[in-house]
Design a protein around this nucleic acid. Structure first.
Lengths: 196, 196
DNA sequence: TCAAAGATTAATCATTTGATTAAAAGTATT
DNA sequence: AATACTTTTAATCAAATGATTAATCTTTGA
């Protein structure tokens, strides 16, 4: 017990390896042996600490889903922020996340797609978006157009380059600088599209 | 031989099943038995006609990569088209493709990511884009900004809703109508972003 | 009609893979 | 030091999975 408190290294090594391998290859293409090797531990230890591939995966998945969606939720329903401020913060925060975690989008979107119901039971994205203050602010400025189109445009501008990274960019550095440069453009362009 | 010419049904049944299952689940999550069952044939027939899972997969993959990229290539380098016409055609053609093939984007982007080099050896997307007439047209209108930002914005607007479909939409019909409605908006918005 | 070629199947193989076990090594408590 | 408990390992299991084989059924062409 005392050991367990102090020596987190093995558990942590496994989680870190799982994070890396699962996100890089996805659930189906990942072998538990890959994770064990990456962590530098015996395969049996993985099951000793985390019981099964699936349980280990759901820890990583929950972590990444939360990371991926918390940004948009924080911004979208923050009543203190003006529409322009929401745009700026979303662009800023997402860009930062996607530069630090280049594979998170494809991983999350892909795994949700492979089991959409379990995601929809846990998270109610559609409802939360629909009733958000962001949506009301957009409708106020641009009535007559489904405000979801604007949100999707904003997210598309931001997230798409990370999803298509392997097609668009040769190296990480180019991707990084493109994303950072883009941060400003996204805010600028979204404001422009929303202005009358 | 005569048989082979006339009776394409078995080969076709396998290809169609492979197309469906591979695109829905990806390479790693697909079992050859799934394909055989979907095709209503014996598992051995799959190997009889296509030798291996990997060979069968590369047929589907090549087909889908071609479908996915041909649209952009056709538009991007068509010297007869004005910038506005390019925008309109790309929006039109991509929307149509993504409505008919809702899973193609995630499938293609994901499988490219899992083996980027083999893709880059076959297709030189970056070079083709860079030297395209579209890029020159954009620079002419908006000098000082990397024209790739505009292309990525356009593609993001168009493709992102299909990539995030399982998160954004509950049913296919909602997705479909959203995409069709969006077609016009994309052209409108891109022209607006490119106008001085 | 009949033999050769092609198509199809059930059974089986070999390997991979997630998981378990039993023993060994390490650590803490008394 | 002795014991109990935790951590780690090598060996192994059982199921899944891609692929093959050998036999059977079907079609073709002379």
């Amino acid at each position: 017990m005392a050991k367990k408190e102090i020596d987190k290294t093995t558990e942590e090594k496994i989680i870190e390896a799982a994070r890396k391998v699962f996100i890089q290859k996805g659930y189906a293409a990942t072998r538990t042996r890959d994770i064990a090797e990456e962590a530098g531990i015996n395969l049996a230890l993985l099951n000793y600490y985390y019981r099964s591939k699936e349980k280990l995966f759901s820890i990583i998945m929950a972590e990444k889903v939360n990371q991926f969606f918390s940004i948009i939720f924080q911004v979208v329903n923050n009543d203190c922020l003006s529409l322009d401020e929401k745009i700026e913060q979303a662009a800023e925060n997402y860009t930062e996340l996607l530069v630090q975690n280049p594979d998170i989008s494809l991983f999350v979107l892909n795994e949700i797609k492979s089991d959409p119901d379990s995601f929809k039971n846990r998270h109610h994205v559609q409802q939360l978006i629909k009733d958000s203050s962001l949506m009301r602010q957009i409708v106020a400025v641009k009535p007559g157009i489904d405000p979801l189109h604007f949100l999707v445009t904003m997210l598309g501008m931001t997230i798409f380059p990370s999803v298509a990274r392997s097609v668009i960019f040769d190296d990480m550095e180019r991707y990084r600088s493109f994303m950072l440069e883009r941060k400003t453009l996204i805010a600028l362009w979204m404001k422009s599209l929303l202005s009358v």
